[in-house]
Each structure stands twice: as structure tokens, then as C-alpha cells.
């Protein structure tokens, strides 16, 4: 029957799929495991890890289906546009997630910490100066805030360069220059991994030599939560880039059909921009 061939003029609607329920089971295991683990009850860590394993299985299966459908030519222009809109909205939601944490940072720096040093609060916290960086009036140890112009400045250069290399790789893809595509992607991944390694080194430095920890009052809180969530996103982005490189090596993507590549590039630029805000507001100012 000729109609079994795909119909590119028709919007692709996937067949029933079991992957979403795997994702739900994964999240149930992960969340209940995390609750047990954080409250030191039973074998929560194992439940959490089992959930992560199911999630990884689900991601492989689900994205595998998407890749097979894409390579099989099932996605027409309109599906491609849906993916673009969907990725755009998703990145917007990520921006808003970071906005909550940046909002918290600005709030404590501009309002909460100076307010603790006003005469009203001198009864509670005598002698508290309210100067940023501050770990709050109840924090009695000494700590050193993270300097901007060492590793963070190098990291800024690394991430900005990686933004350039991923664009250069994209140009290679557009010109059907697979060599440039592969080299550009590999360089981007290398720069990303280098960034993550330097972040890890910086964290170790903070914990061991600066006495700067997650528990170091509001400065430690905002520093580690903001850079930590960013680092998590860079790690995810790097994993996504590795998947894209493996797909490139497998011969996927054509110059006119490669939104998988572009989506990851968008995501990479997004973590880049978040880093610039971090560098300015967390490290520098």
C-alpha cells in the first residue's frame, strides 16, 4: 500500500509511546528517594539512583525515537518550526528559573542585608555593618569572598570562546564542511569541559582555603546556588554537545535540516549569557 510511505505535507503525530510513563516512574523514584536520603531514612540514595537510571533509559529511548523519526524524514518544515518554538519557550522558562535566584541575590544585597544593619536591628545584631559581601550577622567565622579576576575571568574567556567555536561549527554545517563542523564541536566540548574543571577546582579552593562554603551565610548561599545551577546547566549542555558530536560522526544532520544541532547551540549560548550575568553580579560587582 503506497500510503504507508510518509506524507511530508502532513504534520507528524507520533504513535502511542511508553517512554513518558517511564519518565513519570523515574521522577517518582527520584523524588521519593531524595526525600528519604535527605532525611537519612532507609536506602534513599539507592532509590534515587534507581530513578536516575530509569530516567537515563527513558532519555535514550525517547530521544532515540525522535532521532530515528528525524533521520527517517518524518519531520516536515512545520514540525521543524514547532521544535524551534518549543525550544525557545523552554529556554525562556530556564531564564525565569535563573531570574528567581538572581532576584534573591539582588534582594538580599539591596534590601535584606543593609536592613539588618539599620538602627532597628542593632538591638538584635549589635555592630553588624551590612557591607556586601556578607554572611549575615549570625556568622562568626572569617571567610574570603571569591575574586573575579582570577579563574572566573579565565572561565569567562573560555565560555565566550566556546560560543564562537559552536557558531563556527554551525557555519561548517551550513557549508557542508563536515571537518569544520567536527573540529568546531570538539573544540566547544573541550572548552566546556575545561570550564567545568576550573569551576570544580575553584569550589575546592573555596572550601579548603577561603573557608567559603554553601553554609557561609547568604554570600555562600547565593554564590554556590547560582554558580552551582549554572555549572549543572553547563554540564548538561556539554553532554548534549557530546551527543550532537556523536550524531555528526554517525553522519546525521544536513545543511538544511539540523535543528537538533541548533537547539543545543541555542542552549549553549543561553548558559553563556547566564555566565556573563554571574560574572558581573556574583563575582565582580
Amino acid at each position: 500500500m503506497a500510503s504507508t510511505a510518509h506524507q511530508p505535507d502532513r504534520y507528524f503525530v507520533p504513535d502511542p509511546s511508553s517512554w513518558p510513563i517511564f519518565g513519570s516512574i523515574a521522577l517518582l523514584l527520584m523524588t521519593s528517594g531524595a526525600v528519604l536520603w535527605m532525611n537519612k531514612l532507609g536506602s534513599g540514595a539507592y532509590v534515587l539512583l534507581a530513578g536516575v537510571a530509569v530516567l537515563v533509559l527513558m532519555l535514550f529511548g525517547w530521544f532515540g525515537s525522535v532521532i530515528r523519526e528525524s533521520v527517517g524524514g518524518r519531520y516536515n518544515k512545520r514540525v521543524d518550526l514547532s521544535f524551534r518554538l518549543g525550544m525557545g519557550w523552554f529556554i525562556f522558562s530556564e531564564v525565569m528559573f535563573f531570574a528567581a535566584f538572581f532576584g534573591a541575590l539582588f534582594y538580599v544585597r539591596v534590601l535584606a542585608v543593609p536592613d539588618l544593619a539599620t538602627p532597628d536591628n542593632q538591638v538584635l545584631y549589635p555592630g553588624f555593618s551590612g557591607q556586601w559581601p556578607s554572611a549575615g550577622p549570625g556568622f562568626k567565622e572569617m571567610f574570603t569572598p571569591m575574586a573575579a579576576w582570577g579563574i572566573p575571568a579565565i572561565n569567562t574567556l573560555l565560555l565566550l570562546s566556546s560560543g564562537a567555536t559552536v557558531t563556527w561549527a554551525h557555519w561548517g554545517l551550513l557549508k557542508d564542511n563536515r571537518g569544520q563542523l567536527k573540529v568546531g564541536l570538539a573544540l566547544t566540548i573541550l572548552l566546556g569541559v575545561l570550564f567545568i574543571s576550573l569551576q570544580a577546582y575553584e569550589y575546592a579552593h573555596a572550601y579548603q582555603e577561603l573557608n567559603l562554603k554553601l553554609t557561609t551565610g547568604i554570600y555562600g548561599t547565593t554564590f554556590f546556588m547560582l554558580t552551582g545551577f549554572h555549572g549543572l546547566h553547563v554540564t548538561l549542555g556539554a553532554i548534549m554537545l557530546i551527543v550532537i558530536l556523536m550524531r555528526v560522526l554517525a553522519g546525521h544532520f544536513r545543511s538544511e535540516h539540523h535543528f537538533g544541532f541548533e537547539a543545543v547551540a541555542w542552549y549553549w549560548h543561553f548558559v553563556d549569557v547566564v555566565w556573563l550575568c554571574l560574572f558581573i553580579f556574583v563575582y565582580w560587582l
Partner: peptide
């Protein structure tokens, strides 16, 4: 999600988002 994440880390990981003694609010 950010707000409840801050609650979670304040509860279990010693952050000070909502703790005035640590400079939060």
C-alpha cells in the same frame, strides 16, 4: 520552582535564603 528549591536547600543543605542570622530574609 526556584522558591521551593530555596526552601529545600535551607531545610537540608544549610543555605540562608530565608534566615536573617545568615543575612537572608
Amino acid at each position: 520552582a526556584g522558591a521551593v528549591t530555596m526552601t529545600l536547600t535551607d531545610r537540608h543543605f544549610g543555605t540562608s535564603f530565608f534566615n536573617a542570622a545568615g543575612g537572608g530574609d
